[in-house]
Design a protein around this nucleic acid. Structure first.
Lengths: 243, 243
DNA sequence: CCCATCTTGGTACGGTGTACGCAAGTAGCT
DNA sequence: AGCTACTTGCGTACACCGTACCAAGATGGG
């Protein structure tokens, strides 16, 4: 009977209702926390079933008692860390402040758990924490009259901005962890080629960006807020007050 | 002597200058094309060194005569397909049309090669085709006076929008290929849980989006252009005519 | 012709996710 | 109390992966 149990959120941790068999030695929470710890330290790839199991002192296959497969586990850890965003229960009513709060909290979260940016999107994560963030952002616009399509477009604009900004930001960090070569070092090693490109004269606009790359720049924080304001402006322009 | 040869673009295909040893049996082009073909059919993961080698009838390790490692090859195939964007030699002078052309061409490219969206960003790809796209977009704004920081922010806004939109779009397709479950099917399987969420009453705004998900929607194309216009508006608002 | 040099590609190593099945623990029923 | 049915932990095995290493063969210049 039961349903198709196709989503993890439909299969909460198996409860220990009185039934035959030994006591469970671990917990889903334990597995999830171990996975997050490893991903934080050495990247999402490093959070392999073997390594996670080793971290909690279990046999590899034991994990499959707590999680159906690695993909499900990935979904669990994403929702778990999303809980760290710590948004209030409901929006304040000031849509711009609320939307900005979501954006900033999301960026901070991604910077704290850089592996979040390496995930390929697919079906949405409908865990409790992720749903709360969704609900918070969507209901920030409750005071305005708009179709679902418009609402989804506008929140998508915001989410898209944050994600792409932070993906670029975090991409370098992830590469540095993987290869041991950070941005500074990569620039240094690629300098001869960069010089060649500039000298060729084929890419004047690109060269201008390249040349000034060594001079002091806007800090990432400032760049983020600058772009964020642009996006919020563009959202504001499409808002019509509701009933 | 020579340099550090740290980037692929500094090591063009080894030329066949007269020297002892057998003729080369394959070519970098051949390897790149095979990799693209496999990635198009079965995803980036499927483009393994073994599979690519098999595709062109070579031994696995032979590929390493044409490419230093898999990462370099990935960079090569990205630049290769970027050539398909087919932008004109230089911008028309109508910045809005030029920027929109880049956005549309990029989306089309990603839809044609969905694996592009699954790549984790890191150092930029400075291959000839990618550089041309960069140059085209940057120089679209030549008529305006702005700092490099502003220029990078604005083009980043546009690129970010396109990438995040198309990543969401393509995420479903990639998941469908990987798991055999497409969006329709996923929605169907998750319907009981969705119903549960709606009934719980905890997510009213989210529920509204969910409920209308079955009614006819704006087509992806229309949604893309709607958001694109928003982004272009927001860029336009920050433009000051130059000298 | 010789040989220095190049190309091909087999084998092997250390990793991955997970299917299968076995040994052992335990609650409920007789 | 003993049996049984079910659960849990987990070792083994399989089919993949990237690539280091090296042997064997091809070939152009002297």
């Amino acid at each position: 009977m039961g349903g198709d149990e196709s989503s993890i959120w439909m299969q909460p941790e198996r409860s220990r209702r009185p039934s035959p068999g030994p006591q469970r030695a671990y917990s889903r929470q334990q597995v999830v926390r171990a996975a997050i710890k490893i991903a934080d330290q050495d990247g999402l790839q490093a959070a392999s079933m073997r390594r996670i199991a080793a971290e909690i002192g279990a046999g590899t296959m034991t994990l499959y008692q707590y999680v159906r497969n690695r993909e499900d586990l990935m979904e669990l850890i994403v929702d778990e860390v999303t809980g760290e965003m710590g948004l209030p229960e409901r929006p304040s009513g000031e849509w711009r402040a609320d939307a900005a709060a979501v954006a900033v909290a999301k960026r901070d979260l991604y910077l704290r758990h850089t592996w979040l940016a390496t995930r390929v999107p697919g079906h949405p994560v409908w865990g409790p924490h992720s749903l709360h963030v969704q609900e918070f952002l969507l209901s920030s616009f409750d005071a305005f009259e708009m179709s679902v399509d418009e609402l989804v477009s506008l929140t998508g604009l915001l989410n898209g901005y944050v994600e792409s900004f932070v993906r670029a930001e975090v991409g370098w960090q992830e590469e540095a962890r993987r290869t041991g070569v950070d941005m500074q070092e990569w620039m240094r090693r690629t300098a001869p080629y960069a010089r060649h490109l500039v000298i060729s004269g084929r890419y004047p606009a690109f060269s201008r960006v390249l040349m000034e790359n060594t001079s002091p720049h806007m800090e990432p924080d400032a760049r983020f807020h600058y772009g964020l304001d642009r996006v919020l402006d563009s959202i504001e322009a499409s808002l019509k007050p509701g009933t």
